[in-house]
Nucleic acid binder design. Structure first.
Lengths: 201, 201
DNA sequence: GGCGCTATCTACAGTATTGTCCATATCAAC
DNA sequence: GTTGATATGGACAATACTGTAGATAGCGCC
């Protein structure tokens, strides 16, 4: 047979992690099967093991890469929206899409439940808090208002994180259960308004 | 051997579901092992199968019971706090404890990710929305304010749900990542204040 | 006490999954 | 073209888990 396709270790590793990530998002690390991942890539599972080492190493690698992707994607989304100076709503919308469309919201939920996530993984919320708080202080000083508490900004970031995170994987169910199906985007706009009025106080 | 302990089918089923629920909360339905559950109960796994039928039936039963428990616990928590007329904060605190201490927040997260949850399961948010909206209307009419939109109340219930739900299993990580560890209770009080000022508008 | 029902257990079959061994194919270097 | 390094896969070992079969023991009922 001349149907063997020889890849570089980097190519193979990349393809394997890409395939494994799909399974991670769909069913968590518990449902990652070496044979399935290998089949998706188009290789045999001994070849997968040759490149990755073990199932545990695969899960570790795909989790680490997922954390990095989440952080990169979200930070990038925030950066892009922030430079446009268009308020909170676009930032919220972009971050939500980053969590939802890519499946990284689900992936993060799986990893947190599996205790595979550490506080320094995922999104480092403290940098977001610091950035947001600096912006608030600038606005307040310009308008001559008193400087807000740091903790207040942290809580605003947290309620946003919780809302977007939960909505990214439980949103459809929640909105339907609440009797307001397909109002996800309206909710996010409502959340942005809430934050703006709250943060101005 | 005279060490066999004969149970009624109801006792056995109850004990089995109790043990399985612990595994569900800890690792999701994927990590429910018949042998482990049986060992926890103090029976052999064929005995477990005799009572439950199959692994699939066990997962189905424990999921259904968990949904019912979640609903009962949360509804009960809301009822108890509501009758005391002490504002939103106690309700939020009680519901959060109902999700956190029992592990039902984690269980719900697992089941949602596993697509085992339907909108009519879990908490039926629409009844909460209806109840909350009726209360709001009463307050507004008494004070001569204009009646708030129903959707506004729904969104308030949803942001509360998202925040408490996410905090119940991802809270420790999130608060630490944000640089405000151990401020969960303060956050919930802040959330209650936010809702009260928001709902009065 | 004897009997029937069934909850219970031991042993085992069947299947799925991970990991190993070793031969083979592929490609770069010379 | 030859050679060396290694990516690849088929076959197999080892383990874990679900489900089945048949025997046994506990308990209510007569």
């Amino acid at each position: 047979m001349s149907t063997r396709k020889r890849r570089t270790p980097e190519e193979a590793r990349e393809a394997i992690l890409n395939a494994a990530e799909i399974h991670l998002i769909a069913g968590g690390s518990a449902r990652i099967r070496l044979q399935e991942v290998a089949r998706d890539v188009g290789i045999s599972h001994p070849t997968l093991l040759h490149h990755i080492g073990s199932r545990e190493a695969l899960i570790q690698a795909v989790a680490e890469r997922a954390f990095q992707s989440i952080q990169d994607t979200v930070v990038n989304a925030i950066m892009e929206s922030t430079t446009q100076q268009a308020g909170i709503a676009p930032i919220i919308e972009t971050v939500f899409q980053a969590l939802r469309e890519t499946g990284y919201g689900r992936a993060l939920a799986w990893l947190i439940l599996e205790n595979a996530a550490q506080p320094q993984d995922g999104l480092s919320l403290s940098t977001m808090v610091t950035t947001a708080h600096a912006a608030r202080i600038a606005v307040c000083e310009r308008d001559g208002q008193k400087v807000p508490e740091h903790r207040d900004t942290a809580f605003a970031v947290l309620i946003t994180t919780f809302s977007l995170f939960a909505q990214s994987f439980a949103g459809d169910m929640a909105f339907e259960s609440a009797g307001v199906p397909n109002e996800g985007k309206a909710f996010r706009n409502w959340l942005a308004d809430l934050l703006e009025t709250q943060l101005e106080r």
